[in-house]
Write a protein that binds this DNA or RNA. Sequence first.
DNA 1: TAAGATTTGTTCGTATGTATC
DNA 2: GGATACATACGAACAAATCTT
Lengths: 250, 250
Amino acid sequence: MTDAPRAQKRSRPVQVADQIKRWVVERDLRKGDKLPNEAAMIAQFGVSKGTVREAMRILEAQGLIVTKTGPGGGSSVGEVSKDRAMSLLGNYFYFKDLSLSDIYQIRKVLEPELVATLAGKLDDETLDELREMAHRHPEPARTPEEEKQQHITSLAFHARIADAADNELLDFVISFMARILADLTVYRRLYAAPNRALWERGRRHQIDLVEALARGDGQSARDIMRSHMQEAETMMNAQEMKITREFMAE
Amino acid sequence: MTDAPRAQKRSRPVQVADQIKRWVVERDLRKGDKLPNEAAMIAQFGVSKGTVREAMRILEAQGLIVTKTGPGGGSSVGEVSKDRAMSLLGNYFYFKDLSLSDIYQIRKVLEPELVATLAGKLDDETLDELREMAHRHPEPARTPEEEKQQHITSLAFHARIADAADNELLDFVISFMARILADLTVYRRLYAAPNRALWERGRRHQIDLVEALARGDGQSARDIMRSHMQEAETMMNAQEMKITREFMAE
DNA sequence: TAAGATTTGTTCGTATGTATC
DNA sequence: GGATACATACGAACAAATCTT
């Protein structure tokens, strides 16, 4: 049991929620498995309807159960989705004021590592998706709106690669960083000459990376991603950005 | 607004919880700031007491608010603790069956990166704590119980270093991995000769690492951590381990 | 210490909404 | 459509915690 030896006073709904958690773990229940209905829990725990409902809300908020009305309805175990997990974690960092350099310090080492292990292991469908994204914007953006769109496509490119990893933790961390970056609000001064050469190199990186992945060349993939990350960081630092302070919604 | 354009039917408590979240974000409320009390929310949202309470439980479960009874009590904004964030994220991985190699793939690149940036930046108090942990177990374990204790001390050593990072995201990821590893259940066969040489090298690594950090030698720190991670992985792979399948408690 | 005020915590009864058969 | 089984929501009352005087 990881359960802390807690001396704290815990409200009844929280106690009930904890008991239900233990109940689920003990029986090793899985995704669709059903929990007892309200009436049964009222009897089981000797508490009122309201208390049971509050307990269910707690579990629901954590993504652990889903509830349906009607006959055959009730609560059942629900796998925590990646999106919800990212939102919950996002709430933690809401108070932390992450900087771009914080994020890039990690991206710079994780993303090259990721592509190195993925080389030669991607199926054709994934590779085609990546090719499409890499080629989607053949010209530099002319308007802030286009710029934003390209930015989002680029982050989706990275998230798509992470999804293909069989390391769920690596996938999550990289996807989470992509999401934070996507949620950034860009305050930028529009420079007269938005370095076309640098932009072009970024695009080439993506294209070359996909082909390195396709032919199973892990070392090249790693090297390409390294310089890509390096240049991406440079570009972003050149802009004035600020992380939006808001809670993430599921 | 990150808020998704959700068509779903959301129950009233969830709607109320969302509105309160928005309310908090709009006013940029911080850690101790108080929310309206139950009665006010009942009036504000035109819902019943039970509904408001369920909404509060949702926010509480996410670590966003804390509630106290009595005069001057009520709900207030509560910074999400690292522990709670780790627990919530742990629930996501509960369903994922992470392997040791998944975790070490990331540790191997992140921890060397961490110590490299930390060299020369730790205060004396932190360094002394690390020295104490590195020297705490001068002899190899003789019993499974001692072995477990040494394992936990070692993970605490890494978590302590992560805490000192000014990169909150890096801190969190490393601490989270340490916690997962600490939650592992060890099923081991006790080998006749538990490689004393390897154990001794691990201990030396920790001791040397602290001194490299103390004298500000980032390159050495990185190298030491690299081989330390490499050997730690080897040791763990030699053991039979299995991740305990249970929800983490706060 | 004690009493009173304030605010959340819990219960019960009842009514409504919703999905299935 | 109607019956059934279930969650959803409301309102009034009382209990418990905690602060102030």
